[in-house]
């Protein structure tokens, strides 16, 4: 079963929940940190590094001996990664989405592929947790291919938890796609409600079942609960506002270190999701 932990806005406690889910689970599990722009889940796992690999995407390189400067590759490229300029074809690797269109369209077979390194993939393990994180290289704009690659590590285990990037655009969708269930973490504020409403709409559109964890509960604001009730979305857990939790986290400790009772609650959530899905 794959559970994606996401949130419309950042900083609501997404990583906290993702980490707590795998640490609480009694059997083997996988945690995938797909928040490749700011991967943070690794701070909270005391795991042993296994390997670090560079991750690259294929980008075109033009064989000048074969190229007859017809310019069809440049005309075709929807991302303007190729340009016919004077007596050569220029390639702008960082704009390339690796769709393969240029090599398919070239009548001269002059488009070859080479690697463009956009990030790295780091895997680590502890007792029962296999952990994989992707880190996007600074200055690289394209995170979805790296997210797709990290997700390939999440197959075959009892429980795979995905720590998703924040927001509702392509990186978040890429991370969430294919999950069996989505947990949306939010907080009881107007910002929290608004961002939750967008994220819930996105997940519903993808036809994936979802539930909400209301973090830092106790502000007195009822907007999130009202929203969930109106939409028929279940609030699967409320975590009380507690400065102890924030302090523990700032030091790399997890919520389980300060609130041991969370372990049972997290296990309960996994059980509940599992049962709900097999029903």
């Amino acid at each position: 079963m794959t559970v994606a932990v996401a949130s419309g806005k950042g900083g609501t406690g997404k990583t906290t929940v993702a980490v707590a889910l795998v640490l609480s689970y009694d059997r083997n599990s996988v945690l995938l940190d797909c928040d490749v722009e700011e991967p943070n889940a690794g701070f909270f796992l005391r795991s042993k590094s296994i390997k670090k690999e560079e991750f690259s995407v294929p980008v075109p390189v033009i064989d000048a001996a074969k190229c007859n400067l017809c310019g069809r590759c440049a005309d075709f490229c929807s991302f303007n990664a190729l340009a016919l300029a004077g007596s050569k074809i220029l390639v702008f690797r960082d704009l390339c989405h690796s769709c393969g269109g240029c090599s398919l369209i070239c009548p001269q077979n002059a488009v070859m592929e080479e690697k463009n390194i956009i990030g790295e993939i780091h895997s680590a393990e502890s007792d029962k947790i296999f952990f994989v994180e992707g880190t996007l290289k600074i200055g690289k704009a394209m995170s979805p291919p790296l997210i797709r690659e990290v997700k390939k590590y999440g197959k075959g285990e009892n429980l795979t938890v995905i720590d998703c990037p924040p927001g509702n655009s392509c990186p978040m969708i890429t991370a969430v796609r294919g999950a069996d269930y989505v947990v949306l973490v939010t907080e009881p504020t107007p910002f929290g409600r608004h961002d939750l409403s967008l994220a819930a709409e996105t997940v519903s559109e993808m036809k994936i079942p979802l539930g909400v964890i209301l973090n830092r509960y106790g502000s007195g604001y009822k907007g999130v609960e009202e929203f969930c009730e109106k939409r028929g979305i279940e609030i699967i857990l409320k975590i009380d506002e507690d400065i102890k939790i924030a302090q523990a986290q700032s030091e790399g400790k997890t919520i389980l270190d300060v609130c041991p009772e969370m372990k049972d609650k997290m296990c309960g959530i996994v059980d509940k999701i599992q049962k709900g899905l097999t029903k």
Binding site: S78, H97, C99, G100, G101, L104, I105, R177, E205
Partner: peptide
């Protein structure tokens, strides 16, 4: 819709 990156390969071929 949300997965399509708009490369145009499918339409062209």
């Amino acid at each position: 819709d949300t997965a399509c990156e708009g490369c145009g390969v499918c339409a062209a071929f």
